[in-house]
């Protein structure tokens, strides 16, 4: 067993034997939670796959109405914010709480930027009439299946945006704790597990980007 007397026990909860057990539990806990999240999005990916197979042409039309550049910029934003979160973990591991906080806050701000761009996109869809239901104005072949594409688009990106919102708040709060020096190279699990959550949000977007934005351009 580990000699726990030698390591600092600041942040150790009563039911854990030592810091290592607590850290390993937190990491595993977040991973198991993320698996739940994979399956949560998984139901939507299944719907996407089934309907894309059935209505491929409608999917191409729908994708043509996506804003390629906003989608690409948002991808860049999320990839950069993921790098910052990774650097935040590095900073706290080497004892630089202040740097950790700055990285987390910038990443959080980038999440806000992502949401803002997403909002501009949604607004454009509303103006264009690319909203399934009564507001639908797009004159396209097979309008019903194209509406289905937009329905799935709104549900998938909406659920993703909800996760980004939670992540933005999480990173901001953890950054605040870091700035107040709550973490140390021995105890930094909250930074690490919030980072895992943010990277997961990034991974979901890595799949949403080609599945929603990049279909149309393959047409010769």
């Amino acid at each position: 067993m580990h000699d726990s007397s030698a390591v600092a026990t600041h942040g150790l909860r009563h039911h854990f034997a030592d810091m290592e057990q607590q850290r390993a539990s937190a990491t595993l806990g977040m991973w198991v939670f993320l698996v739940t999240e994979i399956m949560f999005f998984g139901g939507l990916f299944a719907a996407y796959l089934v309907y894309r197979t059935a209505h491929y042409d409608a999917w191409v039309i729908g994708s043509e109405h996506m804003n390629f550049w906003l989608g690409t910029i948002n991808t860049v934003i999320l990839l950069c914010s993921s790098l910052l979160v990774a650097l935040a973990v590095h900073a706290v591991q080497v004892g630089q709480n202040r740097m950790c906080a700055i990285y987390l806050w910038i990443a959080s701000a980038m999440g806000v930027a992502f949401l803002a761009l997403k909002g501009i996109e949604y607004h454009a869809h509303f103006v264009e009439g690319a909203v399934p239901g009564a507001l639908w104005k797009l004159a396209v072949p097979d309008p019903r299946a194209v509406q289905m594409f937009f329905y799935i688009y709104f549900v998938m990106t909406g659920l993703h945006a909800l996760h980004v919102t939670i992540g933005v708040a999480l990173l901001a709060v953890i950054g605040w704790h870091a700035a107040r020096g709550r973490y140390s190279p021995v105890y930094y699990s909250p930074v690490h597990v919030s980072g895992l959550y943010w990277h997961f949000v990034d991974v979901v977007w890595i799949f949403l980007y080609p599945l929603l934005y990049l279909i149309a351009h393959k047409k010769a």
């Binding site: 198991v32 698996v35 739940t36 999240e37 399956m39 949560f40 999005f41 998984g42 139901g43 939507l44």
Partner: peptide, 9 residues
């Protein structure tokens, strides 16, 4: 953990 989120969605 693996099944419940699917029925939830």
């Amino acid at each position: 953990v693996l099944g419940t989120p699917v029925v939830a969605i």
